[in-house]
Computed example of a mutant assay.
Amino acid sequence: MAKVVLVTGVSRYLGGLYARRLSAEPGIERILGVDVIPPRHSVGRAEFVRADIRNPMIGRIMNQAAVDTVVHMNVIATPKDTGGRVTQKEINVIGTMQLLAACQKSSTVQRLVVKSSSAIYGSSARDPAMFAEDMNAKSTPRTGFGKDSIEVEGYVRGFSRRRPDVEITMLRLANVIGPQIQTAVTDYFSLPVIPVPLGFDARLQFLHEEDAIAAMVTATTGPSAGIVNVAGDGFVTLLQCLAIVRRPVLPVPMMTAGVIGNLVKRSGLADFSPDQVAFLAFGRGLDTTRMRKVLSFEPQYTTRQTFESFAGSLHSVVPGVDDVSDAVTGAVSGAAGSGAAALARVFERLYP
Rank of each mutant, 00 (worst) to 15 (best):
R284W: 00
G59S: 06
A24F: 02
E210V: 14
M73W: 04
D81L: 05
T8Q: 03
I194P: 06
I194V: 14
I213N: 01
D165P: 08
H208C: 06
R21D: 01
I28L: 02
L350A: 05
P141D: 07
I28T: 08
T220P: 01
G44T: 12
I91K: 06
T221P: 06
V49H: 04
S124E: 05
E153R: 14
V328A: 01
T288I: 08
R142K: 09
V114Q: 00
N63H: 12
M254D: 10
S309C: 05
S316E: 14
L32H: 08
L173R: 13
T143V: 10
E308R: 13
S267K: 11
A214Q: 14
A19D: 12
Q88K: 15
G334V: 15
A270R: 09
V252N: 01
A257L: 05
K115V: 13
K80I: 09
R40M: 07
S23H: 07
R349V: 11
V230K: 07
L6C: 12
V217S: 03
K147Q: 11
H72A: 08
L112Q: 12
V71H: 03
K265Q: 10
A331N: 06
G16V: 15
N55E: 05
A132M: 14
T288G: 01
I120S: 03
Q276F: 03
S107R: 12
H315K: 13
G339M: 04
M1L: 14
A66T: 15
T218A: 06
S325P: 14
Y155C: 10
I31T: 07
V114C: 02
R349C: 03
R40F: 01
V49T: 12
A132C: 12
I177F: 01
P274T: 11
L99P: 09
D165R: 13
L350G: 05
L32Y: 03
T256M: 00
G59D: 02
H315R: 15
Q305R: 10
D323G: 11
A270N: 10
R203A: 04
S224E: 07
V321W: 01
I120P: 05
V4N: 11
L17C: 11
K89E: 08
F189S: 12
K105R: 14
Y18M: 11
S296N: 15
G84R: 11
V236M: 07
T306S: 03
F297D: 03
V252H: 00
Y155F: 14
F310C: 08
G59L: 02
F235L: 09
R284Q: 10
G158S: 12
D233I: 09
L14V: 14
F145M: 10
E153F: 00
R345P: 08
R45Y: 04
G15P: 14
L350Q: 06
V4G: 04
T289R: 10
G146Q: 14
R50C: 10
F189Y: 08
Q182K: 15
S106T: 15
S325K: 11
M216Q: 09
K147T: 13
